[in-house]
Design a protein around this nucleic acid. Structure first.
Lengths: 210, 210
DNA sequence: TAGATTGTTAATCGATTAACAATC
DNA sequence: TAGATTGTTAATCGATTAACAATC
């Protein structure tokens, strides 16, 4: 096991892919898998799989491969999915509703505990089994549920204001879906999930097809 | 202007960020901007801005900077946003509805022309001003609107089947929101927008906070 | 002219991959 | 043992950044 050597960002980004693939293999009762097979399913070479995992320990058996259940547990620990991370979502619009019901989250053991909005027409509505509450109650809700992660799903113009408030009440990680850059202290982690960036990449490709 | 040298993937991913930033500057009537100022707003060094743009031409004036309107037009052309790219969306669930109404698209001049689903309860419903049609009509809809791009917003188990059909009818770019890898011929471009990957990165960070 | 800023080269940095000894 | 596959080193590849001549 290596230590003190910086782990490449790209490695960290691949870990959830390994995790998801192994979950699926486990559900199919596959017991052992080689770095070659695992890599093929994800679209990376076997050396990359081995190198990525080697940053965290030695999880395989030479001449054999990786035991699916055991590697899955290791990745769960590495990714932090063995702990409980309640989430607050700001914005009860279409996107907010979609995220509450997103199948990918439950699979990871992640749960949106509260949905907040400023729109009086939305407060009190139910999304799935969660009642939309007033954004004014952010502080007490974050304390009550011991929340450290917030999702911003509001129009771009409000995103910075919401981000500031989240930081104020002590949230440590923000997932921002508004198509705008938010400015945040360094100690808070932000992931900008900007959907327009993705589609522009596809258009770029289409525009160059012939 | 360079030619024949491969343009880094990372450069292409930054182009939409420049585009968006310049749109905003233009709306604010800013006329000229330096690579330094532009970079600061996006969070990259000025050298990176200049290098990225240099792959496509010489757009600035030494000692002065970049003329916002002119650079914006150049980027529009480079990204292919000066053409018309009608889109078909498969899946009229929460996520599909969110995408139809996503503010980022219209800004880019992109438009979802048709929404399809297999669920009889959803066919005939309206999302914004689009009527949900049967997935069985995919072929004729793609031909009618000359569609080259498809968005998959269905549950993971159906994603591959939908992708196959999209390829069959001649779609050339696919944006996949289902949390699963889809297998597609090389000549069709796929962008996997896997939301679980993003949130796992944040959890990874939270789990290492202290 | 003096100050500012581009476009580009070359150096640096970081990530991927080939190769192979270790070992099941 | 022979065959398979890991974990790791070293080589390669690709992206970022520092430095600076060109020039507005």
């Amino acid at each position: 096991m290596k230590d003190k050597i910086a782990i490449p960002k790209t490695t960290i980004e691949r870990l959830p892919l390994y995790y998801r693939c192994l979950s699926k293999l486990d559900r199919l009762d596959v017991e052992v898998i080689s770095s070659k097979e695992l890599g093929d399913r994800i679209g990376v070479p076997s050396t990359q799989v081995r190198k990525d995992l080697s940053y965290y320990g030695e999880f395989g058996r030479r001449g054999v491969g990786y035991e699916v259940k055991s590697l899955l547990r290791q990745l769960e620990r590495i990714l932090g999915l063995d702990s409980y991370w309640p989430i607050v979502l700001i914005g009860a619009g279409n996107l907010g509703r979609a995220l509450v019901n997103y199948e990918g989250f439950r699979r990871l053991g992640l749960e949106i505990k509260a949905v907040l909005d400023t729109d009086l027409n939305k407060i009190g509505n139910r999304i799935s089994n969660i009642e939309v509450e007033s954004f004014k109650n952010l502080d007490e809700i974050v304390i009550k549920h011991k929340i450290q992660m917030g999702i911003i799903a509001v129009p771009a113009v409000f995103a910075q204001e919401v981000a500031d408030q989240l930081v104020n009440v002590g949230v440590k990680a923000i997932w921002n879906f508004a198509p705008t850059r938010i400015v945040i202290p360094d100690e808070v982690k932000v992931k900008n999930e900007d959907l327009s960036v993705g589609i522009v990449g596809l258009v770029y490709h289409l525009a160059r097809l012939d």
